[in-house]
Design a protein around this nucleic acid. Structure first.
Length: 373
DNA sequence: TTTTAATGGTTGTCGAGGTG
DNA sequence: CACCTCGACAACCATTAAAA
């Protein structure tokens, strides 16, 4: 199938959200749209990633520059700080760019839509989005971006910014350094999945690998010559590790999953000691291997390595083959899951199996669930 | 009166070079 | 590496003058 011009569906996003308490008219006309764009940029990340309104939001210069020049945004940011609309902090939360957040009363005020009309701003926003599309070199990324642009929102969907972003076809897509694909759907709160339509399909299934990263970790560690308890491998392959770990801590599966991921991601130094001891007691060899690895390669985080492996298998292999073999089948990816209509479930499952056979020496459990449930 | 051209000021773009 | 400053130039816009 010929991939249509992706640039054709790039639309500059003319709607931003600003606090009702903020009156753009305090600024000179030429700065109003830019100021509103920046206020939106601050609240957008808070909405997208579920941060609180008190959270500091990093606004790297590279990002601001996609919309306007330093000579434009700098005076505006200064004025907004002077007017006590926003405040700034260098390096909040370990970021090495400047971070901003709203000040009261704007912070707790409701958000209202504001339409950007400033031509130069719209032009730069468009150019940036086109650049993002151009940067998608891999055919699989282009296909995924194309299917993403067929996403619509059901009529009865609530009027919330997350869904509004999709309604307006403001489809952003970022391939991070680890090869994972981030979109408006990967950060969509679960409760809104129900309203998503992919190429018109409302019944979408998630075909995912249980304990994807741990499967890859176990296999990879063994291949690198580290010992891993067979118990650990069995639990991982059967998809029971989170339950077991949660039970050992006396909490439910979800909390167990959370604790386990934090534990492994924090190695070798930043982790919860009691949780570490529980893990060590359950799986002494695996614990030892993880520790040894993370100490010998302190700069190459185990977690990041696993994320790289995960995207290599799920995106580079499974999704890639899927788009190649079934170019007319809609497909979305949510990190360790392929999301497809009913007609694609079987193909997705077999391609994930193939991908694991190629990159991994164990066979994981593959789950098929209704994604929109 | 309408159209076109010239003018000058403002705003936007780009890149070299500098800082910690 | 991320951020900042500055200057040269381009693009844009409104006003005015000239021509038809």
């Amino acid at each position: 199938m010929v991939i249509p011009d992706l640039k054709a569906d790039v639309v500059p996003n003319t709607t931003v959200y600003i606090p009702t308490t903020f009156d753009p008219r305090v600024l000179v006309p030429k700065d109003r749209d830019c100021a509103c764009w920046m206020l939106n940029a601050i609240t957008q990340d808070q909405r997208r990633y579920g941060w609180t309104p008190e959270a500091w939001v990093p606004l790297p210069q590279a990002f601001l520059r996609t919309a306007m020049e330093y000579s434009v945004y700098q005076p505006i940011l200064r004025q907004l700080q002077g007017d006590r609309v926003i405040e700034m902090d260098r390096g909040a939360g370990g970021e090495n760019c400047r971070c901003y957040r709203l000040l009261e009363p704007h912070r707790s005020a409701k958000q209202v839509a504001y339409t950007i009309t400033k031509n130069t701003l719209l032009k730069r926003m468009y150019r940036f989005q086109v650049g993002v599309v151009d940067a998608l070199k891999e055919p699989v990324h282009q296909s995924l971006r194309r299917w993403l642009s067929t996403v619509t929102v059901a009529d009865d969907g609530p009027d919330v910014p997350h869904l509004d972003e999709l309604r307006r076809k403001d489809f952003w897509m970022k391939v991070c350094d680890y090869g994972r694909i981030h979109t408006g759907l990967t950060s969509l709160p679960k409760r809104y999945r129900h309203f998503i339509r992919l190429a018109g399909h409302s019944e979408l299934y998630a075909v995912d690998v249980s304990h994807c990263q741990f499967v890859l970790m176990a296999s990879w560690l063994r291949r690198e010559g580290y010992a891993v308890d067979s118990d650990f491998v069995q639990q991982v392959l059967g998809g029971r590790l989170y339950d077991t770990f949660g039970a050992a801590l006396g909490v439910d599966r979800e909390k167990g999953k959370d604790a386990l991921i934090k534990l492994v991601y924090g190695l070798p130094r930043r982790y919860n000691r009691p949780h570490g001891e529980v893990f060590q007691r359950l799986y002494p060899q695996a614990w030892d291997s993880c520790m040894t690895y993370s100490r010998s390669y302190p700069h190459e985080h185990l977690s990041l390595h696993m994320q790289r492996l995960e995207s290599k298998v799920m995106i580079g292999s499974a999704a890639h083959l899927f788009t190649e073999f079934f170019p007319d089948e809609p497909l979305l990816t949510i990190h360790d899951a392929l999301v497809v209509p009913r007609s694609g479930v079987f193909s997705a499952e077999s391609l994930i199996k193939d991908a694991f056979d190629t990159h991994c020496d164990v066979k994981p459990t593959i789950k098929k669930t209704l994604w929109t449930a």
